[in-house]
Nucleic acid binder design. Structure first.
Length: 710
DNA sequence: CTTCATTACCTTTTT
DNA sequence: GGTAATGAAG
C-alpha cells in the first residue's frame, strides 16, 4: 500500500520574528543580545527583569539554540511557568523541551535520573517539613537521649538547625552556640541525631528539600563525566533571583557552568535579598564577578512600574543600606500621588482605614484584584482580615499552610507514598497509625518484621504473605487488614492517581475523617479537590512530586462572600510571598518597631539591612498608590497590658517631604453612641493612651515642621 | 499498649 | 489556634 507522505515542520528550528530593538530599552537590549560567558544582570525593582529574561530566551532561540540546551532556574514555580508561557507567546516556538523550574524541582528531576549512584531508587520520597519532624522524632528515640527533665530541642528546632547547617555550611556546633545557646549542653546528642537523620533518610529512600540541592551538587562534584555531560547539554544557564541563592545553589550553577564554558547568566537585585533566614548568601551576587572571572555586568535602572513619587520613597529608603551595587533607578511613568503615611491609634482603626479606602478605590474604578495588603508576618493580618470579612469585601490570603501540608492531605498521600516507595518509613507509620488499635509500638514491630521491599508489588506481597496478622494483638487486626486492603487497591492504581486517592478514601479514610475532624466537611472537600488535581497526572509518581514541589495551591485561601459574583479578590500576603508581583494600590500595614524590623531579626548580623530590604520589596510592589500605616497602641489582653509602639524606623528615616500624612478620625456610629457597646481596646493606665472617641493628644502625632514622629 | 486529656509554648519570613 | 510533651485511664 502506498503511504501518503506527510512532512512535520520542525518547529523548534523555526526562527521567531521578534523585534528586539523596538521592544526593549537600551540596557535591556544589551543584556538580551549579549554573547557568551558569565553575565550578571543587576535588575532593579520594576525594571523589566522578567521581560529581559524572557527576551533573552527568545533571543537564544532566534540564534538557533535548541530549547533543550537552555536551563532556566527561577525562584518559584509560578515564576517559571510565567516565564515559559511568555516565551511561548513571544516566540511562538514550541519550548516544551526547555528545562525550567526551581532549584528544587530541577534537582529532583536530576536525582530521579542519577540518584542511583548514591543508593537511591528512582522512586525516592521527598520529605516536607512535617515528614522531616516525624523522622527526627524517630532519630531522637534512636539516639536515646533522656529528654525528660531538662529542655531538649523539639523536632522542629532540630530540623531548622540541620537545614540551616546544610544551607550555610556553618558547623552545627557553632549554630547551636550562636542561635540556641540554651541547648549547648545537648550538643553531643544533637550531633548524633543529625548523623542518625542522614542514615535514616538513606534507609527510607527519602530526601528532604535540602538533599535535593546538596545531593545534586555532590553528584556533579564527584562525577566529572556527568558534569561534562550536563555542561554539554545545558549550553545556556539562566538563573533568576540570584540574590536569594545560597552557597549550595551557587556552587551547583557554577559546577554546571564549568562544563559549558562559563555560560552563566545570573539575574537579580541585591536590594531584594530577603531570604537570609534560609541561608541565602548575599555574597553570591555581590561577589559573582570575582568568582566568575570575565563577568560582564549589565544594569537595568529604568523603572516602569511605579510613579516617580513612589520610586523616590523607595530609593530614599534603600539608600540607607551601605553594602550594595550602586544604581539609581529612574522613573519612566507620569507623576502620581504622594505615598500616604497613616498613623492610627489602634489596630482596629488601621483595619477600618484599609477597608474604607479599599471601598473608595473600588468605587473609583480600581478592581479589587489590583489591590494588595502586605505585612511582615502572617499574624499581622488578623484585624484587617476581620474587617474585610465584616465589610463583605472578597479577599484571598496567600500563604499559611500549604495545601499539601495539611494533615488530611498528608494522611491520604502517605498511603500513596508508601506503596510507591515501600522503604518510606515515615509514610508507612503515618498511614498505619491512623488505624484503630495500632499505636507506636505495634507499628514499630510491624515495620521491623516486614520483609524489605523496594517495588510496590513486592511490598504488597510482603504485606500479604507475612504471618504477622496472627501474631497481632486482637485489637490491632482489623486495622492491619484495612491497611493492607488499601495498599492493595493503591497498587492497582499506579497509573491512575485519581483512582488511587479515591481508593484511600473508600478504604476507610473518609469515615475516619468524619469522626476525627470537627470541620470534616471542608476537609473532605479538599480531598475531592485533591482527586481532581490528581486526575491531571498519568502516574502516582508524577502526581506526588508535583504536589510536594509545585504545591502552590494553598489550603487556607479564604474567600469571603459578597461583592460581584466573579470579582477577583483583594490579596493579603506577606512581603516574602509578594515578591515578583505588583498591584495598582498597596497597603503596607503594621509598620511598627518590633514587627518591621522584627525584634528577632535585629538580633542577627545584618538584620537591620535585611529588614530594610523587606520594606523595600514591599513598597516597590506598588504601581500607583502606596499606603503606609501603623497602629500606635498594641492592645493587651483586657484592660491591662496595652503598649505604645513606635512607628518603624524605616518610616522615620525617610525624608518627610516624600510622604503625605493622613489623619484618621472616627465618625461616631449610632452603636458607638451607646457607651455599653463600646468594643475598643482599652489602653492601660501606664501607657498614657486612652481609647475614647476623640482624638487623643497623647497618641496623636504632631504634624509640624519636618518630623511626624516627635 | 493505645488513647485521650491536659499542659506549656509559641508566631518571621519558605522551597 | 496549633504543636509537642506528659500523664492517667482503659
Amino acid at each position: 500500500m502506498a503511504a501518503r507522505r506527510f512532512v512535520l515542520q520542525r518547529r523548534s528550528g523555526h526562527r521567531p520574528e521578534v523585534d528586539f530593538k523596538a521592544d526593549l530599552n537600551e540596557q535591556q537590549h544589551a543584556a538580551v543580545t549579549c554573547g557568551d560567558g558569565p553575565k550578571l544582570i543587576i535588575a532593579g525593582a520594576g525594571t523589566g527583569k522578567t521581560r529581559t529574561l524572557t527576551y533573552r530566551v527568545g533571543w537564544l532561540l532566534s540564534q538557533g539554540v535548541a530549547a533543550e540546551n537552555i536551563l532556566l532556574v527561577t525562584f518559584t514555580n509560578k515564576a517559571a511557568r510565567e516565564m515559559v508561557e511568555r516565551v511561548r507567546t513571544l516566540t511562538r516556538v514550541d519550548n516544551a523541551r526547555l528545562w525550567g523550574g526551581t532549584f528544587h524541582s530541577v534537582g529532583a528531576r536530576f536525582l530521579r535520573r542519577h540518584g542511583s549512584a548514591l543508593g537511591y531508587t528512582e522512586s525516592f520520597s521527598i520529605l516536607d517539613a512535617s515528614d522531616q519532624r516525624d523522622l527526627l522524632r524517630l532519630c531522637v528515640t534512636d539516639v536515646g537521649v533522656n529528654v525528660t527533665g531538662r529542655r531538649f530541642p523539639t523536632p522542629k528546632v532540630l530540623g531548622s538547625l540541620i537545614s540551616l547547617h546544610t544551607n550555610t555550611r556553618v558547623a552545627l556546633e557553632d549554630l547551636v552556640v550562636e542561635r540556641y545557646p540554651q541547648f549547648v549542653d545537648w550538643e553531643e546528642a544533637i550531633l548524633a541525631i543529625a548523623q542518625r537523620y542522614v542514615t535514616r533518610k538513606r534507609e527510607a529512600n527519602a530526601m528532604d528539600y535540602d538533599d535535593l540541592l546538596t545531593l545534586w551538587l555532590k553528584l556533579l562534584q564527584d562525577d566529572g563525566e556527568l558534569r561534562a555531560r550536563y555542561g554539554q547539554r545545558l549550553r545556556h544557564i539562566l538563573v533568576d533571583e540570584y540574590q536569594d541563592t545560597n552557597i549550595v545553589q551557587g556552587e551547583i550553577v557554577e559546577a554546571l557552568a564549568e562544563g559549558n564554558g562559563g555560560n552563566l547568566m545570573a539575574v537579580g537585585d541585591d536590594c531584594q535579598s530577603i531570604y537570609a533566614f534560609r541561608g541565602a548568601h548575599y555574597d553570591n551576587i555581590l561577589r559573582f564577578p570575582e568568582r566568575n572571572p570575565g563577568t560582564e555586568i549589565f544594569k537595568l535602572e529604568v523603572n516602569y512600574r511605579s510613579t516617580p513619587e513612589i520610586l523616590a520613597l523607595t530609593n530614599a529608603s534603600i539608600a540607607c543600606n551601605a553594602d550594595q551595587y550602586q544604581k539609581e533607578l529612574s522613573a519612566e511613568r507620569d507623576t502620581g500621588m504622594l505615598p500616604a503615611l497613616i498613623p492610627c491609634n489602634y489596630p482596629d482603626q488601621e483595619a477600618g482605614f484599609v477597608v474604607e479606602r479599599i471601598l473608595q478605590l473600588r468605587d473609583e474604578g480600581t478592581p479589587l484584584r489590583e489591590i494588595a495588603i502586605l505585612y511582615r508576618a502572617h499574624s499581622h493580618r488578623l484585624t484587617v482580615e476581620t474587617s474585610l470579612l465584616r465589610a463583605d469585601i472578597p479577599y484571598e490570603v496567600r500563604g499559611g499552610l500549604r495545601f499539601f501540608e495539611q494533615a488530611h492531605v498528608k494522611d491520604v498521600t502517605a498511603h500513596l507514598r508508601v506503596v510507591l516507595n515501600p522503604r518510606d518509613e515515615v509514610a508507612f507509620r503515618r498511614a498505619l497509625l491512623l488505624q484503630q488499635g495500632i499505636g507506636n509500638v505495634t507499628a514499630n514491630r510491624l515495620w521491623e518484621s516486614l520483609v524489605a521491599a523496594t517495588e510496590p508489588e513486592q511490598f504488597l506481597q510482603a504485606l500479604e504473605t507475612t504471618d504477622l496478622a496472627e501474631k497481632l494483638p486482637s485489637r490491632a487486626r482489623a486495622g492491619w487488614q484495612s491497611f493492607v486492603a488499601t495498599a492493595r487497591s493503591v497498587v492497582e492504581c499506579l497509573n491512575a492517581p485519581e483512582a488511587a486517592v479515591q481508593s484511600v478514601m473508600e478504604g476507610g479514610y473518609e469515615a475516619l475523617a468524619r469522626v476525627q475532624f470537627t470541620n470534616f466537611e471542608s476537609r473532605l472537600e479538599d480531598l475531592e479537590q485533591l482527586a481532581i488535581f490528581a486526575a491531571q497526572y498519568d502516574t502516582l509518581a508524577a502526581f506526588l512530586e508535583e504536589l510536594v514541589l509545585l504545591g502552590e495551591m494553598y489550603g487556607q485561601d479564604v474567600k469571603a462572600g459578597g461583592g460581584e459574583e466573579d470579582e477577583r479578590p483583594v490579596v493579603l500576603s506577606t512581603v516574602h510571598q509578594s515578591k515578583g508581583l505588583e498591584w495598582d494600590a498597596v497597603f503596607f500595614v503594621h509598620l511598627v518597631e518590633g514587627a518591621l524590623p522584627s525584634q528577632r531579626a535585629l538580633a542577627e548580623r545584618g538584620g537591620e539591612e535585611e529588614e530594610r530590604r523587606i520594606f523595600y520589596v514591599g513598597t516597590t510592589r506598588a504601581r500607583n498608590e502606596l499606603y503606609l500605616s501603623y497602629p500606635i497602641v498594641r492592645p493587651g489582653s483586657g484592660m491591662a497590658g496595652a503598649l505604645l509602639q513606635q512607628p518603624s524606623r524605616f518610616l522615620q528615616e525617610i525624608p518627610t517631604r516624600l510622604m503625605e500624612p493622613w489623619e484618621i478620625f472616627d465618625a461616631p456610629t449610632s452603636q458607638e453612641r451607646s457607651p455599653a457597646s463600646r468594643q475598643r481596646p482599652q489602653a492601660g493606665a501606664g501607657a498614657g493612651a486612652s481609647a475614647g472617641d476623640d482624638w487623643d493628644p497623647n497618641v496623636d502625632p504632631v504634624w509640624d515642621d519636618d518630623s511626624y514622629f516627635d
